[in-house]
Design a protein around this nucleic acid. Structure first.
Lengths: 343, 343
DNA sequence: GTGAAAGCGCTAACAT
DNA sequence: ATGTTAGCGCTTTCAC
C-alpha cells in the first residue's frame, strides 16, 4: 500500500473507483445508502491509496470533528503535566487531541485570539489553560483550567490554592520560621491571588504581621523570578525561609541561593507549589504543595466531554466549578530553624 | 472589543467596513495595493470585532501556515519532554505549534494515517515521534525522532542509544553484578534494538555470555512491562540487577519489586533509560541513562525549520541524521553486590 | 486600489 | 443506490 505521490484526495479515490466523491464520502463516514459491493470496492481503493480524509477540509465543512483542543500559552512543566492527564482521560472517549500553542505566548488575550483562530471548529470543544482573560465569547464548549481572576461564565477547574498555600506557610511556621519571604505569582491569575491569601492567613493565624517588604512578584516563570528572587535573598535581615508561588519560581530561588553561596535548607528554607516532576530533581529536592496537575487535566476533559455530548444537561444551569485538593509534600529544601539563630 | 456573538468571519468585517472580503484579506495579510485609509478603517473594524482569521479555512486555501505539527501517539513522559524542548526551540522562529495525538495510538501505521489527515497542510512541516513505520510518502518537510528500524529516507534525530545502554550495563558490571536481567523495549524501534545491542556488548566485553533466559520484552510502557517484569524478578536464581530499556518499564520493575517484597537496591539493582523527570521521583530515585529528550525535540525543530525555510539546500542531498549524546545518571536504585552474595 | 469569482477538500442537502 | 451541487472561510488570480 501507499505508493501514492503527494496527498491523496477524495477525488483521486472517486476517480479510481469510478464513483462520485459523494459516494466515497459516504463510505468513509459509514453513511447508509451505499451497496455492499460499492462499499467494498471503494474501501479497497482507499486502502490501496492510503487515503485519509483531510482534517482541515472536513472540519471546515462539518460540525462534528471528534477533536478536543487544548490551548496553552507554551509547553512548560505545568502545561505538560496537564496534557498528560488530559490525554489519558481522552483515551476512552473516542476524541482525538490537538494542542495548540500560539506564538503570541505572553501577550494578554492570547487565548481569545487562539480561540478565534480555531473557530470554524477544528475542535468540538476547547480547554483553556491559565487564560489571561475572563470573557471569551465562545460558540462551542469551553472549559478553563486555573483561570483568570473574575466571575467565570465558563466552567472551571482549579486546585485548593488557598488551602495549599496555607499548609505550606504553616509548615514553615511549624519549623520555627518567622521571617518568611513570599515570591508571588502572576497577579492576573486567581490561583496566584489565592496562594498569596493562604500565605497571609497562615501568618495571621500565627499572630505574625504581614510584611510587604518580604514580598516580591515572581510571575511564575524562572526568568521573571530571577531578579525578585535575588532581591528577597539579599534582604537585610534575610528571610530564613521563602515560599514561592509555584515550583518554577522556587527552582529559581534555589538557583539564586546557590549563586549567592547560600545553603538550602541550612541558610534558607524554600517551599514551592505545584509538584511538577522537576521539583524532585532539584538539589536539594524541593518541598512543595502537590496539586496533582494531571487530575486537573483529567477533570477538565471530563467536564468538556460532558458539555459536548450532553449540551442539554447544562444549558440553563450555572457553569460547573470544580476544585481539587492539594497536599503538602515535604522533601529536603526545608528544615527547622536553629533556636540560637532566632532573633 | 469583542462583543461579537459567535465566530466573526472575514465577511462580517468586510460588511462592516464596506469593502470586499478580498480587501480585508489583503489587510490581514499585509499585501500591497490597499490605500492607507482603507487599511486603517479595516484594521479598526478588525480590532473592534476581535476578528482573527480561521486557521482551518486559511490553511485549506493557502500554502504557508507558519505552523509546525508534532505527531505523537500519546502524551506520556517521553513525548511531553520532547514537546518542552520543541516548544522552546520554536519560540524564536515565528512558527506556531500544533501537537496532534490521534486516537489510533497503538496501531501500527498511526503516523501515516495522521500524516494523511493533516495533509492539505495544516502545517508547513511535521515532526514524527517514535513512528512505527519507515516509509512515509510526505509532500512536505518531515523529521522523525527516535524512528523505526530501517533505512531512513527522512531526516532523523536519535540519541546514542547503544553507548548509553553499554554504559548502564557496565555500571552494573562494575558494581559486581553478573546476572543482569534485561527488560527490552519496542522491538520495532531502532532505539530499542540498539539498547539491547549495548547491553550485549557490555556483557561480551566483560566476558559474560549472553543468556536469553534473562531477557523479557517490556514494550516501553508500564502496563506492558508488568508481566515481563514479574517474570524477571521471579526467576530462579533471581537476577541481582535489571536493566530496563526505558524509565517507564524500569519504574514498573520498581513497583513489581515492591509487590514481591524485594528491596531496591538491596535485593536487586535497577537501571532505566531516558531520564524522564519522573525517574527522580521514584523510591528509591532511579539510576538511569540521560538522553536529554528536550534536546532531541530542540534538534528536530532545528532540522525541520531548515527544511521548511531552505528546501533548496537539502534538495538533492542525503537526509540528515543527528545523534545526541547520552550520559549515565547514578541515583540510588543501584548498589554494589555484596561479595558474599556472589556465586 | 478594489471587487468578482474560482477554488482548496470535503459534507450534506437535494436530485434522480 | 448514486450523482450533482452548494457551500464552509479563506486566498488569489483576473478584471476593472
Amino acid at each position: 500500500m501507499a505508493l501514492a505521490a503527494g496527498r491523496v484526495t477524495i477525488e483521486d479515490v472517486a476517480a479510481r473507483a469510478g464513483v462520485s466523491i459523494a459516494t466515497v464520502s459516504r463510505v468513509v463516514n459509514g453513511r447508509y445508502g451505499v451497496s455492499a459491493s460499492t462499499i467494498e470496492r471503494v474501501q479497497g481503493i482507499i486502502d490501496e491509496l492510503g487515503y485519509e480524509s483531510s482534517l482541515v477540509a472536513r472540519s471546515l465543512r462539518s460540525q462534528r470533528t471528534n477533536i478536543v483542543a487544548i490551548l496553552v500559552s507554551g509547553i512548560e512543566p505545568f502545561s505538560a503535566e496537564l496534557l498528560k492527564g488530559a490525554a489519558r482521560a481522552l483515551q476512552d472517549t473516542g476524541f482525538e487531541l490537538i494542542v495548540y500553542s500560539g506564538g503570541m505566548s505572553g501577550q494578554e488575550g492570547w487565548e481569545r485570539r487562539s480561540l478565534s483562530r480555531l473557530s470554524g471548529t477544528l475542535a468540538d470543544g476547547i480547554i483553556l489553560v491559565t487564560p489571561t482573560v475572563v470573557e471569551v465569547s465562545a460558540h462551542q464548549p469551553v472549559v478553563a483550567v486555573d483561570p483568570h481572576v473574575g466571575g467565570w461564565s465558563l466552567p472551571t477547574v482549579t486546585a485548593q490554592n488557598l488551602e495549599g498555600a496555607r499548609a505550606a506557610t504553616r509548615h514553615l511556621l511549624d519549623l520555627g520560621h518567622r521571617r518568611i519571604g513570599f515570591l508571588a505569582g502572576r497577579s492576573d491569575l486567581e490561583s496566584a491571588r489565592r496562594r498569596e491569601a493562604g500565605y497571609r492567613e497562615a501568618l495571621a493565624e500565627a499572630g505574625i504581621a504581614f510584611d510587604p517588604a518580604l514580598v516580591r512578584v515572581g510571575g511564575f516563570t524562572e526568568e521573571s523570578s530571577e531578579q525578585p528572587a535575588r532581591e528577597l535573598l539579599t534582604l537585610d535581615p534575610r528571610p530564613t525561609a521563602v515560599f514561592a508561588a509555584n515550583d518554577l519560581s522556587a527552582i529559581q530561588v534555589l538557583r539564586t541561593a546557590r549563586e549567592l553561596e547560600l545553603s538550602v535548607p541550612d541558610d534558607v528554607s524554600v517551599v514551592g507549589f505545584d509538584n511538577i516532576p522537576e521539583s524532585a530533581l532539584t538539589d536539594p529536592p524541593l518541598t512543595t504543595v502537590d496539586q496533582s496537575i494531571q487530575a486537573l487535566g483529567h477533570e477538565a476533559v471530563r467536564l468538556l466531554v460532558e458539555l459536548i455530548d450532553h449540551p442539554e444537561r447544562t444549558l440553563g444551569a450555572e457553569p460547573a466549578h470544580v476544585t481539587l485538593p492539594t497536599e503538602l509534600v515535604v522533601r529536603r529544601s526545608t528544615r527547622a530553624l536553629d533556636r540560637e539563630a532566632k532573633p
